[in-house]
Design a protein around this nucleic acid. Structure first.
Length: 278
DNA sequence: ATAGGCGCCTGCTGGC
DNA sequence: TGCCAGCAGGCGCCTA
């Protein structure tokens, strides 16, 4: 489910309930997540105080007072929320951090279990892991030279490039489609054949769409919620995602759906024409 | 090195 | 009603 705007919303929602609190207990469901939970992490976490809660791409970083850092990813269906410890534990809850003072829990729920939680010794280890994965820059204030350089050197289609976390961190299937519509670029166009104007439009469109989505607390589809439990509202402003056959909000042409980079891809065939050159 | 495909999981929807 | 295929917002590993 979650792309950058949803992850940013989660971080903002859980931050006030976490910073300054101490971890009093760690409870696992025992079900295997994408990454296996090391039992020693539970011992190391107890007694730690939360210093900060941050986001990097789609990753959530919880900094602790001994310098260690709990790094989490919501995968496709992850939810992370702070709630009263007395509240009933929902199914598919795989990690619960009991917090004090306050008698609250940080609960990680993930139906499909594509998410993960890993404890790193220190910030350097986190940075090293991101470097090793070649995680790309944040999408806001992308360096224009970097951006045109990355586009010019790949023959993949624009949709595939936007989904590549090594090129830019945080964009997923929904916001890739929305950004391409905003830039009026066909998702199947080859990145290296894009001219400077198109590249610039796309760079700005990514920031525009993500900023707008964060303002709306992200998108909520099929009653999915996260953070404090409130839903997002950006799904009401989708221009193309999930609107197959519906009229384009700009030109009334029916939105089309194709498959690109293994993902369903939505676009307006009139507003987003394919490459005309060759 | 690069690009594409598959597997990991569960739940929901639509067609028969 | 039941069954089954296909679909879902991500990532990492494997192969050619």
């Amino acid at each position: 489910m979650p792309e950058l705007p949803e992850v940013e919303t989660v971080v903002r929602d859980i931050r006030p309930g976490l910073v300054g609190r101490r971890i009093a207990s760690v409870t696992l469901s025992g079900k295997k997540m994408r990454r296996r939970w090391d039992r020693s992490w539970s011992r190391e976490l107890v007694g730690r105080q939360v210093r900060a809660v941050r986001r990097r791409g789609k990753w959530i970083l919880i900094d602790l007072d001994d310098g260690s850092c709990l790094v989490m990813h919501l995968g496709m269906s992850g939810q992370l929320k702070v709630m009263p410890a007395a509240a009933a534990v929902e199914s598919h809850t795989h990690l619960v951090l009991g917090l004090k003072p306050g008698g609250t829990d940080l609960r990680f729920r993930d139906v499909r279990r594509f998410g993960s939680a890993v404890l790193f010794r220190d910030g350097d280890a986190v940075e090293q892991a991101f470097r090793k994965a070649k995680l790309g820059p944040e999408p806001f204030h992308l360096d224009p030279k970097y951006w045109t350089g990355r586009l010019a050197t790949t023959d993949r289609c624009l949709k595939a490039v936007l989904l590549d976390q090594q090129v830019v961190a945080g964009v997923g299937n929904i916001y890739a489609d929305e950004a391409l519509f905003e830039a009026r670029l066909h998702p199947g166009r080859i990145a290296s054949r894009l001219d400077a104007t198109g590249a610039s439009r796309l760079r700005k469109a990514i920031a525009t769409v993500l900023t707008r989505a964060i303002d709306r607390r992200g998108s909520t589809i099929s009653d999915f919620y996260y953070g404090s439990g409130q839903s997002g509202g950006y799904q009401r402003e989708f221009r193309v995602y999930g609107r197959t056959g519906e009229p384009c909000r700009r030109c009334r042409e029916p939105i089309e759906r194709i498959r690109l980079a293994g993902r369903s891809t939505h676009f307006c065939p009139r507003c987003q024409p394919p490459d005309t050159k060759s």
